[in-house]
């Protein structure tokens, strides 16, 4: 019951993340959407690894913990990239029209 509920909720969150990623112009928004998506994947990873008992799979937990830390490292690097793009172009976004400006 709980498992099914969390899987469904996480799937919705994943879909919302995809939607947010597609409609976001601002790179910071895209990063937020990506982080939301990764959270939902972590939830599903943990829920399906368990056997319905009270102690989830320790390997899955360790993998997710690694994933959370990698996600923050990647986010920090992406934020530095975004700031560089803003410095260079004056815009916090990447769009096809960027090529026309040159």
């Amino acid at each position: 019951m709980t498992e099914v509920m969390f899987v469904l909720a996480a799937s919705l969150v994943f879909g919302i993340g995809v939607w947010g990623l597609l409609i976001a112009e601002h790179l910071l928004r895209k990063l937020l959407a990506l982080n939301v998506m990764s959270s939902s994947v972590f939830i599903i990873m943990l829920v399906v690894s368990g056997d319905g008992g009270t102690s989830p799979d320790p390997v899955a937990q360790a993998l997710i913990l690694t994933g959370i830390v990698i996600a923050v490292a990647a986010t920090a690097f992406a934020l530095a990239l975004m700031i560089s793009i803003y410095r260079a172009t004056g815009r916090p976004s990447i769009s096809e029209s960027d090529d026309d400006d040159r």
């Binding site: 799937s11 939607w19 597609l22 112009e25 916090p92």
Partner: peptide, 23 residues
């Protein structure tokens, strides 16, 4: 530094499909 949300005709269908896929 804010920009409005963009528009994409494909966003909703793609998002729905990915949610269904993940579910």
């Amino acid at each position: 530094a804010d920009t409005p949300l963009g528009r994409s005709r494909l966003a909703v269908p793609v998002a729905l499909l990915s949610a269904v896929l993940v579910a």
